[in-house]
């Protein structure tokens, strides 16, 4: 799993690539715990080809933690397989999901101002 982070318009964007399963989920977990991220984080999933419940759990954990401090995790560009995992577990209800990275960053930017 490749995890890259950059900050644009004071919004942290985490770009993931590869498989997010029980093997790689701990990487994302420790990455999110050890990085200084903006309150609103955009998770770019365009290159995630597979997601299992462990990955889901980490993403959900990140979102719940961000929400405690008024932020959020916004999801961008998930493929159909990944979307189905979110759908099947009804976790779609928990997230703002964008099909475009720029739109997600813009949302994270404006949403931050309203906090």
């Amino acid at each position: 799993m490749i995890i890259r982070e950059n900050t644009r318009d004071s919004v942290s964007t985490i770009t993931l690539a590869g498989t997010l399963d029980a093997l790689s989920a701990p990487e994302l977990q420790s990455f999110s715990e050890n990085s200084a991220l903006s309150p609103n984080v955009v998770l770019d999933l365009s290159d995630v080809d597979f997601l299992d419940s462990s990955g889901l759990r980490v993403i959900r954990g990140m979102a719940l933690k961000k929400r405690e401090s008024g932020g959020d995790v916004i999801l961008a560009c998930m493929n159909d397989d990944v979307r189905k995992v979110f759908n099947n577990t009804q976790l779609v209800r928990l997230f703002h999901i964008y099909d475009d990275l720029d739109a997600a960053v813009t949302y994270a930017e404006t949403n931050k101002k309203s906090i």
């Binding site: 159909d80 759908n87 999901i97 099909d99 475009d100």
Partner: peptide
């Protein structure tokens, strides 16, 4: 294709979420 929105989203947000 299929996508999810939140119940509070206005039309502008809906369009932004499906910008691509």
């Amino acid at each position: 294709s299929y996508a999810s929105i939140q119940s509070g989203d206005d039309m502008q947000t809906v369009l932004a979420k499906n910008k691509r």
